[in-house]
Computed example of a mutant assay.
Amino acid sequence: MSAIKGRGAASGAVSARFNLPAREADGDWLDSAQLVDGPGRHPLTTVTEEHPRSILSFNKSPDVPFDRSVNAYRGCEHGCIYCFARPSHAYHDLSPGLDFETRLFAKPAAAKLLRETLAKPGYRPAPIAMGTNTDPYQPIEARYRITRAVLELCLETGHPVTITTKSDRVLRDIDLLQALAARNLVHVGISVTSLDPVLSGKLEPRAASPAKRMAALGRLSAAGVPAHVSVAPVIPAVTDHYLEAILEEAAERGIRAATWIIVRLPHEVAPLFREWLDAHFPDRAGKVMATIRSIRGGRDNDPDFFTRMRPQGVWADLFRRRFRVAATRLGITGPKVDLDCTQFRRPSLDGQLSLL
């Protein structure tokens, strides 16, 4: 399987997990598309506007530090090959591979829907997480500005929010982030996988370069916006040797909080990741997968509550120790996200805040 320039996935096979039929040749033009376009084709990105009835999703997972989230987009053009959100496209009859990064969905009414939820008499505030499924600052945010609209609503209502991104586009909203930070209403995490732009171009082909992400962390820190670097995901024998260097550069830019996460390969992500390894690192593909399986109890992925985010075994212990030693040396601690929920004021549906 050869790589496709500018994309993370090397194929667009649909998933059989939801009993979706595989496409069979029927004589139409699609049967000749690859023959005509060749393996180096450049799939175009399309965006479909989606109009759901609600936007705030709740969860009861014991493995994540939030119970609610807003996802402004479905699919992500960053094309990170390891993205654990890829399987969500399979549920909609689309490929977790190329479709996930080329057939995107935007929810332009997100802020309006969120306002309706926040206005309900029974609503109780807790930090809203953005970027938990797909990146809120992927390229189409420049056009739709959905994330910005949600942040504006959070500032208006005094509602706390957290952001996770791989993009320096977060700086376009630094005015809102500073205003939220002044009221202890926001925390930002930026994920950095390596410091090598060539490697990152293979792993996450349309995400911001490592240098831009590091610069964004520095800008946020200087602006007084609470931020941390997330060394995520750590991929054994591919990115793990950058762990200490990422922490060191982040510390030099004023960042004093960090986390790390080992790579996860749920459902269709595992075969896509194997294709990627075969295309880019055939010399070490076996070693990488063997190490991942040793961390996940002999499986490509551990889906179980309480253990899926807690890698086990010798390799996991080594990465954990390396992170701890480097963080201690640099004065880095775990991110303390203790945002203020007491400032929340329920909005009215006409855009005015309630006095009560």
Rank of each mutant, 00 (worst) to 15 (best):
I140G: 01
T164P: 08
L176K: 05
R169A: 14
P121Q: 03
R143T: 13
T134P: 07
T162K: 07
R172G: 13
P127M: 01
G131A: 00
I140A: 02
L155G: 06
T162M: 13
D175Y: 02
Y137P: 00
T117E: 15
E156K: 15
T164W: 06
A142D: 15
P136G: 02
R169W: 09
G158K: 14
T117F: 07
E141I: 00
A126G: 12
K120C: 04
L151I: 05
E152H: 08
S167F: 07
I174C: 05
T117S: 15
A142P: 00
G158T: 10
P125R: 03
L176D: 05
L176V: 02
L171H: 06
P121I: 01
L155E: 13
D175A: 10
I146F: 12
P125A: 06
S167H: 14
H159F: 10
R145Y: 09
I174Q: 13
P127F: 03
I146C: 11
L151K: 08
D175F: 02
I128V: 11
R148T: 12
V161C: 15
A119T: 07
I140M: 15
Q138R: 00
V150T: 07
E156D: 14
G158W: 15
E141P: 00
T162V: 13
G131M: 01
L155M: 10
V170I: 14
I163H: 11
T157V: 11
T162F: 10
R143Y: 08
P125E: 05
P136W: 06
R124L: 09
T132W: 06
A126D: 08
M130Q: 01
T134R: 02
D168H: 15
S167Q: 11
R145Q: 15
L155D: 07
A142T: 09
L151D: 10
L155K: 12
E141C: 03
P136Q: 05
I128T: 04
T147P: 08
L118R: 12
P139I: 01
I146A: 11
I163Y: 13
C154T: 10
L171C: 04
K120S: 14
T132D: 14
R145E: 13
G158E: 13
P125H: 06
P139T: 00
A149M: 06
I146K: 09
R145S: 09
L151E: 10
L176M: 05
S167E: 07
V170N: 05
K166D: 06
V170A: 10
T134K: 01
T147E: 13
Q138M: 10
K166Q: 04
V150S: 11
T117W: 14
K166L: 04
V170C: 05
G122R: 12
R148Q: 15
R143M: 03
I128H: 09
D175R: 02
S167N: 12
L153N: 12
L118D: 11
T164M: 14
A126C: 02
G131R: 00
A149T: 03
E156C: 04
Y123I: 01
I174E: 08
Y144W: 12
A119I: 05
E152C: 03
T147S: 15
T147C: 10
P127N: 03
Y137K: 01
R169D: 12
G158C: 13
E152N: 08
C154S: 12
